[in-house]
Amino acid sequence: MQLNINGQTHEVDADADTPLLWVLRDNLGMTGTKFGCGLAQCGACSVLVDGQVTRSCVTTVDMLEGTEITTIEAIEQDDVGARVVEKWVEHQVPQCGYCQSGQVMAATALLKEVAQPTEEDVRAAMINLCRCGTYNYIKAAIDDLSGRKGEPL
C-alpha cells in the first residue's frame, strides 16, 4: 500500500492490520515515534493524521491510505511545529525525552487548531504521560506559545 508520510509517498509492504507505529519504526526506520504502551494510554506514539493528533500504536495502516501523516522527523518543516520545538528547547522541557516526541506532536496539533488555546484547552489536549514529571515545563512552554508568558521555571 501507499502511505503519504511527511510529504513523501512510501510504498509499504505490511499487513493491513499493522499499526502505523511499527511501519514507521521497522519498515521505514523512522524511530522518532516511540512505543510506550501499545494501548493508546501514554501517547508516546503520537503522530498527526490530516493534522489531528493520532495514537499510531492503535491506528492500523489500512485506515490511512489517502491521508497525510506527519511524524516528529518532519515537525520542524511545519511552522507551528518549528515554534513548538523552539519553545521546548527554550524552556528545557525534556528530561529522559522518551515521551517528548509525542508531547511535541500533541502540542503542535493543539496550536494548529487553536492559535491561542486557553488553559482549559491545554488541559484537554495535553494528556500524554510523562514519567519524569516534566508537566510543569510542558505547561510553561505551551503557555508561552499561547501568549501567556510567565517566569521561566
Partner: peptide
Amino acid sequence: RLDVYDKSTGRAEYSI
C-alpha cells in the same frame, strides 16, 4: 542541557 534539541525532535536514540 546538551540533549534537549535531539529529544524535542525525535533524534535521540534509545536502546529500543
